[in-house]
Amino acid sequence: MKILVVDDEQDVKVLFQQRFRKEIKKGELDFVFAFSGEEAIKTLETIAHEAVLILSDINMPGMSGLQLLEIIKKDYVAPPPVVMMVTAYGDEENFNTAKALGADDFLTKPVDFKLLKEKLIQKK
């Protein structure tokens, strides 16, 4: 299963590659990266036949993470990918909106990588 990480910060890619260095090396986890909601949609089209878990930031310029979530949950009928939302604002409103839009999980920045690792391995 591929994990698509969506964040407008470029360094998120390097960080994930190092945080999950061992898992990537052993082939336990497979990451792809997109730096905007628009790019994420394009990436999803190229890997449409694969099972995907999406990990998306909410506050991004252009298409926000919540808009991306809405599109994914609407367009991918059977079965929609698992979507985990990450945001800098750990507030009720974003949490509720994300849940209402069908988010499968919710993480707040700074991300607890130990917890994320457990969740990713579990959902694999």
């Binding site: 910060e9 360094d11 960080l15 190092q18 945080r19 506050n59 800098a88 604002y89 920045k109 700074p110 991300v111 990588f113």
Partner: peptide, 17 residues
Amino acid sequence: AHEIQNPLNFVNNFSEV
């Protein structure tokens, strides 16, 4: 706060890793 949160997270994360 938002603009500082992101670089700060990177400082912490890259230090830990």
